[in-house]
Simulated scan of single mutants.
Amino acid sequence: MSSGGDNLSSSYFFLIGIPGLQDVHVWISLPMSFMYLITLLANISVLLTIKKEESLHQPMYLFLSMLLLKDLVQSSAALPKMLLLFWFNLQEISFEGCLIQMFFIHSCAIMASTVGLAMAFDRYVAICQPLRYSTILTNPFIAKIGVLVVMRGTLLIFPLPILVKRLPFCKSHVINHTYCEHMAVAKLSCANIRINVVYGLIVALLVIGVDVMGITVSYIMIVTAVFKLPSREARHKVGSTCVSHVCVIVLAYVLVLFSSVTQRFGGHTASSTQIILSILYLIIPPMLNPIIYGIKTKEIQKNVLKLYCPQKSRFQ
């Protein structure tokens, strides 16, 4: 390990994994690798299905594609390196590689939140403004939302690696984590990291605050519209179209909030608990998102089956 007051411009960090659980890293990696495999297969299957089937070229499924692409990038930015750490104890990661990993993991988290807001808007228009749905959610408009998703995640997170790069690391190069989480890296610096803490907190509160408020307002309007429907069957049918989105949103926000809060304020929470929560955020939503939509959406079920079992699907 390098030492001294250098800025690590050409040095390395060392990831130690889950503190106190290094002896069982291999056993922990078994369910992780299985879940990552499911993540890859499920996300790629649904993405290929949406791409292949013209009937799925609708706003709801295009937004879902954005979410699944984000899931693939985010999980692939962290999990392969994490598994190498658990399997072969390959702790070393270059400073530049650490900054790149940090950028992709955190920017994808913001993109996920933005896509969640866009999906809530899609459901609002579909249920509350059905006659204007095709004129509001046009392909050019959806493309603009896609650009906004990428730009928002990129511009808000781009300062984080820069803020870390300016810090001197003269205390330690050992990261008590399984990946380059912003605060885990910044805490290693021997300089004042108040700017890092404040900026990270502002971004988290701004993004989550704005997006949760937008999603909440959308669903208040949706619930109001649903209760005005004349029949119970109609209310059930319309409400069921929102269940997948609500499950995905709750799952993502609960995990990211627990992970973020314990990382910053969990002084009495075991570091292993904090790290496990952050790992779960990177594994569980990307794995479950395509499964949740696949179970709740008959169009996806039917077309995924057609993709893998074309002969069987003909008889259904």
Rank of each mutant, 00 (worst) to 15 (best):
L255Q: 12
M82A: 12
N7C: 06
V210E: 15
W27Q: 13
L62W: 03
V149W: 09
I249D: 11
Q129G: 09
I110L: 15
Q263I: 10
L167W: 06
T241R: 08
V223R: 12
P31C: 10
V223E: 10
E299M: 03
V198G: 12
C180K: 05
Q74L: 06
F158M: 13
L99W: 06
A270I: 13
G266F: 06
M35H: 02
F86Q: 00
S240V: 11
L64S: 05
V24A: 03
M183K: 10
Y133H: 10
I220L: 13
V185T: 05
K165M: 06
P140W: 01
V174Y: 02
F141S: 08
Y293F: 15
F88P: 08
Y219I: 08
F121E: 09
F95K: 04
P290C: 07
A77N: 12
A252S: 08
M66P: 14
I276S: 05
T39H: 00
T216Y: 13
M221G: 00
T224W: 10
F315G: 05
M32Y: 02
A120C: 15
N192F: 10
S244K: 10
A234V: 06
L160T: 11
C98G: 00
N43W: 08
S272P: 03
V147T: 05
V197R: 15
G239H: 02
V246I: 15
L79C: 05
G5Q: 02
P159D: 10
L307N: 07
P285N: 01
L8R: 09
L47W: 05
L68S: 03
S259W: 14
L288H: 03
F95Y: 13
T297C: 07
V197L: 14
F14L: 02
H57Q: 12
T269L: 15
E299R: 14
I300V: 09
V164D: 07
V207Y: 11
I195M: 14
